[in-house]
Each structure stands twice: as C-alpha cells, then as structure tokens.
Design a protein around this nucleic acid. Sequence first.
DNA 1: ACGAGACTTCGGCCGCCGCCGAACCGATCG
DNA 2: CGATCGGTTCGGCGGCGGCCGAAGTCTCGT
Lengths: 227, 227
Amino acid sequence: MTAPYFAEVAALMGDPARANILAALMDGRAQTAKELAFVAGVSAPTTSGHLAKLVAGHLLAVEVQGRHRYYRLADPLVAAALEGVMALAAHGPRRHRPHAPGDAELRHARTCYDHLAGEVGVDLLSGLLGRGHLAPGPRDYRVTSAGAALLAEIGVDLAQAARQRRGFARPCLDWSERRPHLAGALGAALTARFFEKGYLARRRDTRAVTITPAGRRMFRERFGIDA
Amino acid sequence: MTAPYFAEVAALMGDPARANILAALMDGRAQTAKELAFVAGVSAPTTSGHLAKLVAGHLLAVEVQGRHRYYRLADPLVAAALEGVMALAAHGPRRHRPHAPGDAELRHARTCYDHLAGEVGVDLLSGLLGRGHLAPGPRDYRVTSAGAALLAEIGVDLAQAARQRRGFARPCLDWSERRPHLAGALGAALTARFFEKGYLARRRDTRAVTITPAGRRMFRERFGIDA
DNA sequence: ACGAGACTTCGGCCGCCGCCGAACCGATCG
DNA sequence: CGATCGGTTCGGCGGCGGCCGAAGTCTCGT
C-alpha cells in the first residue's frame, strides 16, 4: 500500500554500475569520481549521475578537496546493509559462478568497511572470545582485563575507541563465513593498527588484504590463529 | 568490474510492487498470490511475474496447496537483509514523511519474520538479559537455569527449539529501535507461544501486533516490562 | 461433467532510466 | 594567462522492464 520506503534504497543498490561503486567503497576508503567511474565500468558523466543519486539517497557522503571529490560510504549502517544483501546473494544456490578469480582471497581476508572480515576476521573474533580477551555483553562485547593488556601491547587506544560515537565492539555478520566478525570502533581501531604495524597490507582495486609474514606470526602468537 | 553479484538481489527488492510483497511477507506468514496482488497494488498477472522473479532469485519460496499457491520468505536471511535495508531507510534523514498512520503501532510491537520486534521486542530481550534469564554467549544467547524455569512455565519447549537447524537465540537488529531484539528458534518459539496463549493478537494487513490485556499483565509480571 | 475460481502465460504498450558525447565550470600548473 | 585535468550539466538516444487485458491451465466444488 503505502510505498515501502526501503524500495528506494534497494533500488539504489540494485543498479550494476552503482553496485560496483558501493562495493568498491566497502573498504571504507574514499575514492574520487574518476576512480569510481573506472570500477563502475561506465563513462564519467554517467558515473557523476550515479554518485549524485547515491548522495541524495544518503548512501554516500562527499568531501571536496581541491579539484577532486572524494566519495565514501555515508555511514557504517550502509556497509552493514550491504553486507546483509551480500550474505543473501552469496548464500543463494550458486548462480552460474564456479568462483570468480580472487574470490578465494576475498573469502580469506578482506576489509569490511573499516574492519577485518573473512575467514581471518571471523577467527580473530572467536579467538578473542575463546581466550577470554573479549566477553560477550548485552550490546557490545566487553574487553576483559586480560584483553586490555593484550590490546595495549599491540598499541590500540581503548579509551579513544570507547569515546567514539559509533558502537564500541559489535558483531557484524560475515557474508562469506556466515559467522560474525568484530566491528565497531574497536574492530576499526584494531584493524587500523594492523595496517600501521605492517601486519596487513592493502591491495589495489580489491577489498582483499594480504597478511604479511610478520602478520602471520603475530596472529599465531597473539591470537592463536593460523592466518 | 565483475558484475557485483548482490546487485541482482538488491534490484529485486528495489521495485515498489515487489517491495510491498516482501514487506507483507516479513511477518513470516505465507500468503496467496491474490492477497499479495492486493498489497502490491498491481494486477494479478503483474504480481505473478514479480513472484516468479522473486522465487527465481531465491528470495521467496512457494508451496502449492490445492489451487492456491502460498508464498513466503525463502529464508530468515532474507528477512535479516530486508531489516538491514529498512534500518538504512528509516535512519536516513526523514524523507518528507512525518509519519505514516499506523507507524506508531508498528514501532511499538510488530512481528519480524516469526519473532517479536519493535519497542516491546527490544524491551523483552533486555528484560531477559537484565533479569538473568538469558546470558550472552559467543554466538547465541544461553538460557540460564532461571530462564529455563521461566520458559517452561510459559510452555516453551526449549529442547525442540534447540533441535532446529536455524540459530538458537540470536540478536536481530531492530530497525525502529536500532537495538537488538530476540530472534532465532527461541525468539520464534516464544512469540508463537504468546500468540497461542492469547497474549498477542495479529491484525489484518499489518505486521503490527496487538498486546491483549492478559498479555500486558503477563509482560509486566514475567518480564518486568510495560507493554 | 461442468462451471467457477486461482494462477500463469502471452502479446503489446509505454515510460523510465541508464548511457554517451559534447559542452561547460572551476581548480591547478606552467 | 592559456592549457590541462577533474567533475558536472545538458540533450538525445535506446532498451529494459513494469503494466495490463485476454486467453490458457489446473483444481476444486457440486
């Protein structure tokens, strides 16, 4: 009856070019219109139109810097909604897609907006819980004293993460593993630290991340997981 | 580049008529093609086409019963994905929509697929947690011995709920409250019991549910919440 | 066996929207 | 200042897809 509301949002996600753009921005980094035109596979004018629509629909935010315009996801909620739809798409009996190249890497380790996802991300969260560094709470996970010590060693500023306006330590359903990984301010801070210390390395044009040898060692020693 | 996958799913959700259909099925009940044609606001042939697409896309499942065809959501994951998109739509700076009639009722108490959502659903979960009937766990909530006693009094068969293939007791982000309510087999079993015992009553043509006087009393006594 | 009802298939219409090339605006750099 | 580059706006084209009415299939009731 009353035109359901979410249809507009879903329609925005439903165009192939726009979906490519959104997928490219799922790693939380901002990108210029030109870069996005490339990933979208359409011309610059067409891309511009799509971007305008996505901004109008509050899926993207734009930041002007000189003659560049950087687009990024407007809100972690957008990433969450996209992951939900992806989970659905991934789950549906495989549509004629043996698996795309790079798919294995993506399933193994990738960024989800600004935190770590994929097999490694899921293992990380269950490792933290299993070793008693994190304890489940009613809404957010709670950092135990053992966990606080561990995170301090790694150099994560817990106080700052707790101050953020976003949720502190939330589960986020992983579309490939169908089990949660660690999201929220803590997930983001931890992941950022992994990049800073060279445990993880971004790759060009993909959300998949490389785990460096140092990272592999660290994951085993600190969290007891085989990355 | 590689056509992103989830675009097809999002596009299925993005048509107004189909969105109406999906929204109508969000309460977990199955409905006939004719009923759905009505809620979709389009003719029977058009509806038939939409339904076929939704089934092909694995968003809906169909069950033939005599000369009727009952359509329902194919999987709880579909409901979860839809809630995610709804959360996004509800959150985006209110689009020229002061609030639709019935909106208040919907926010207060409604079914989300097959479990209770809205203000009451969220309060129910936090009540269960606060009173120590449910304890957070790594994936599912755990029923404490006190909780098991309470649920037995109400007549919920815990063993049967635990046997189900779906998750046992999961949080589900509530789009109107933006806090989790209780989903999974336990959420469904509890909600079903509420309907059986006449604590809740369904209404026609809406996911909003009525809380009966007996239900109001029960919610206060058993769970300490003002419904 | 017949008619009614539920649902789908078919055929054709129409409008929306995605697409591009060309032109336009503004910032940067020589 | 002109040249270049990033980005958007404009105008026009083309096709996908949603829509309906009519006709077809199947099931049930009687």
